[in-house]
C-alpha cells in the first residue's frame, strides 16, 4: 500500500471526564472510500474533529500523508453535519463554492479567471450546474449537500470528510449522495471518509469500514468487520449479525435485551421492516 492519506494511531480523547475515544487505530489509502459507522454518541463527530485538528487528542496521534499535520485543515475537505442556511443569505451556490477556492487567504482574490474555471469544474463534478445560481438557503437539503461537496472539492483535497451526509435525507436522495461521493472518489482520486449511523446504504461502495462503538474502533473490509465475533468484542457483549436479502442487521444477542446497544441499533432494525 502506498503512503496512507490518513493514519490514526492509538487515538484517545477525553471530554469532561468521559472517554469519548479510546485507542482508535486505522489508516486510509489514497482514493479509498471508507465508511465510519457507529450509532449516535459513538464518537464519530469527535473523531472527525480530531482529524481536522479541532479537538486535541489526549493520547495517540493523527498523521496526514504520513506526517503530522502542518497547519489546520490542509489537504482535507470537510462537509459538516448539520447546516441550516439562512434563506435570505445573499449567496448563490456558486459563491459558496468559490469561497472554498481561497477563503483562507486575506485580501481580494487575484486569480478570478482561474477561480471561475475551478468553480465550474467543481460544480460539474457534483452535477450542481442547474441550481448553482439560486440562493443556497433556498435549495433543498440534497442540493445544499452537493454545493458543500463542491465547496470541499475545489481546494483539491486528498481526503474528503463528510459528517453524516445522509442524515435527514430521504432514501432516494441518500442513494444519490452516496453514488455521487463514490464517483468523486473514483474520478478525482480523493479518499472519502463518510460517517453514518446506517451501514446499508454504504455497503455497495465501501472499500473499507471503520466501525465505532463505545469509543473503540474496528477497521477493515466489511467482510472482516461486520462479523458477530468482531462486533461483540467491540460492544463488550454478544451481538448478532444477520443478513437479510443482502442487507445487514445488527442486533443485541438473545437474552441481552436489557442492554442499550440493542436499542441503539434499532435504526437498522426498522429500516429492514419498511
Amino acid at each position: 500500500m502506498s503512503e496512507a492519506v490518513l493514519t490514526v494511531e492509538g487515538l484517545g480523547v477525553r471530554i469532561a471526564g468521559r472517554q469519548v475515544l479510546d485507542g482508535v487505530d486505522f489508516a486510509i489509502a489514497p482514493g479509498e472510500f471508507t465508511g465510519l459507522i457507529g450509532s449516535n454518541g459513538a464518537g464519530k463527530t469527535t473523531l472527525f474533529r480530531a482529524i481536522l485538528g479541532l479537538q486535541r487528542p489526549t493520547s495517540g496521534r493523527v498523521l496526514l500523508g504520513g506526517r503530522p499535520r502542518s497547519r489546520r485543515g490542509a489537504g482535507i475537505g470537510y462537509v459538516p453535519q448539520k447546516f441550516l442556511l439562512d434563506p435570505d443569505l445573499p449567496l448563490r451556490g456558486r459563491d459558496l463554492v468559490a469561497l472554498g477556492f481561497d477563503a483562507g487567504r486575506l485580501g481580494p482574490s487575484t486569480r478570478l479567471r482561474r477561480r471561475r474555471a475551478a468553480v465550474e469544474e467543481a460544480l460539474a463534478a457534483v452535477d450542481a450546474e442547474a441550481f448553482a445560481d439560486t440562493r443556497v438557503g433556498r435549495l433543498s437539503g440534497g442540493e445544499q449537500q452537493r454545493i458543500l461537496i463542491a465547496h470541499a472539492l475545489i481546494s483539491r483535497p486528498r481526503l474528503l470528510l463528510a459528517d453524516e451526509p445522509l442524515a435527514n435525507l430521504d432514501l432516494r436522495s441518500a442513494q444519490e449522495v452516496v453514488s455521487l461521493l463514490a464517483r468523486v472518489c473514483r474520478e478525482q482520486g480523493v479518499a472519502v471518509l463518510i460517517s453514518a449511523h446506517e451501514i446499508n446504504p454504504l455497503l455497495p461502495v465501501m472499500d473499507r469500514i471503520v466501525y465505532l462503538a463505545h469509543g473503540r474502533a474496528a477497521s477493515g473490509t466489511s467482510e472482516e468487520v461486520i462479523r458477530a465475533d468482531v462486533l461483540s468484542r467491540l460492544y463488550g457483549h454478544h451481538v448478532d449479525v444477520i443478513d437479510v436479502h443482502g442487507r445487514v442487521l445488527i442486533v443485541a444477542g438473545a437474552g441481552d435485551d436489557a442492554d442499550l446497544a440493542g436499542c441503539e441499533e434499532t435504526v437498522e432494525h426498522t429500516e429492514v421492516i419498511q
Partner: peptide, 23 residues
C-alpha cells in the same frame, strides 16, 4: 474589511467549515 473579506465571508456563512479550514 477588504483584508478579511473572504475568511469573514466563509466564517459567517458556514462557521464549521471555516473552522475546519483553519479559520
Amino acid at each position: 474589511v477588504a483584508i478579511l473579506y473572504r475568511p469573514l465571508m466563509l466564517s459567517s456563512a458556514l462557521p464549521e467549515v471555516g473552522e475546519a479550514r483553519g479559520i
